[in-house]
């Protein structure tokens, strides 16, 4: 048997000593623009996986189409760059096929709230066990500045050169109205600790954890969300013992309001008022069973011997008589 110094054995071979660090989640070098919030979200997700010591081989990152949907290339894990608006059905399939995998779904506001809206509503209703992130910068960036469902009223874009005619969709209000919602939080790219803490809580949640991440596009929507958090009047942190911790360093980015994440009615009111963007955990129901659990319970689970009997019975039926 080969002889090894003990320190080498411990660091290289001993499985208990192996700690995953940020470098273990580095994929390709990101090609997002400088100053893009996506870079910070990528870092936050890498930290999330590092903190949970998630093996890259046990994580699947699924995305749709858009700037944000380049995410799987830059994260070292299994990846699926899907088609426009279909990140959630693909993620649902992955989660159902192999419940052991941790599924991260990354979408943009156009991807999820527009072409993917049908899937969006039903994914929430199904409550499959996955972490869904919408990187909302109120614009289509990859295709260069078209109006998205969250683009504010009057914003001039290439598709609405005279300014957007409709007030924006309120995704929080919509999600808080969907049956079977189990987790909804909102955070922003300019709040790195809050972003990570939110993702941590979502990661631990059993069921579909939906996180909307506010950001601005440095090229096409630099003004979004008070120029990316520069206007504290527009934001409000939600705090509660069950909610997301607020680092004192972040207080200059917005006011504070106590909110119990178990209180759906208040969450709906908060979302619909739209005076300030609520940051934190809007709603969580940890007791809602995930779709996998319900499905598992509803279906029969025969033992191998029973399966064989069932199969034989089926085959016997096909055999010619006599």
């Amino acid at each position: 048997m080969d002889q090894l110094p003990i320190d080498e054995f411990l660091t290289d071979l001993c499985p208990f000593e192996k700690q995953l660090d940020l470098d273990d989640y580095l994929g390709e070098a990101p090609r997002w623009c400088q100053g893009c919030g996506d870079l910070g979200i990528l870092t936050a997700v890498q930290k999330l996986l590092r903190d949970n010591q998630a093996e890259p081989t046990e994580v699947v990152c699924v995305s749709g189409i858009g700037c944000s949907s380049r995410f799987p290339y830059y994260l070292k894990a299994f990846g699926f760059h899907g088609i426009h608006g279909r990140a959630l059905p693909i993620s649902t399939g992955v989660a159902l096929a192999n419940p052991k995998l941790k599924v991260l779904t990354v979408m943009g506001d156009g991807d999820c709230f527009s072409i993917g809206a049908g899937h969006w509503v039903h994914a929430i209703r199904y409550n499959v066990n996955l972490l869904a992130m919408v990187l909302d910068n109120e614009i289509y960036g990859l295709t260069r500045e078209q109006t998205s469902p969250t683009t504010p009223l009057g914003t001039r874009t290439r598709t609405t050169p005279k300014g957007a005619f409709l007030p924006p969709l309120n995704p929080l209000q919509l999600m808080l109205g969907v049956s079977n919602l189990s987790f909804l939080a909102q955070t922003a790219t300019w709040l790195p600790q809050h972003l990570l803490a939110t993702l941590q809580q979502a990661y631990r949640h059993q069921g579909l954890a939906f996180v909307r991440i506010l950001q601005h596009c440095p090229v096409f929507s630099p003004q979004a969300f008070g120029e990316g958090g520069k206007d504290a009047e527009l934001m409000e942190f939600l705090y509660h013992v069950q909610g997301i911790a607020i680092d004192p360093a972040l207080e200059r980015f917005g006011g504070r309001r106590e909110h119990d994440p178990a209180d759906l009615a208040t969450a709906q009111r908060l979302a619909s008022e739209r005076e300030r963007e609520p940051l934190g955990l809007l709603y969580q129901n940890p007791d809602l069973p995930s779709y996998e659990t319900i499905r598992h319970a509803a279906l029969a689970h025969p033992s191998p011997a029973e399966k064989l009997t069932l199969l034989n019975r089926r085959l016997d039926r096909l055999a010619p008589e006599g």
């Binding site: 660090d21 940020l22 400088q34 100053g35 893009c36 919030g37 870079l39 910070g40 990528l42 870092t43 890498q46 930290k47 790219t189 300019w190 709040l191 790195p192 600790q193 680092d247 360093a249 972040l250």
Partner: peptide
Amino acid sequence: ETKLCTACDECTNINKRIFVYDKEKQ
């Protein structure tokens, strides 16, 4: 204010001799 760094690469792209990321990528 390192704690608030969003890791957007702006400063490190301007001058890598002045600005670097720490091990938490901030």
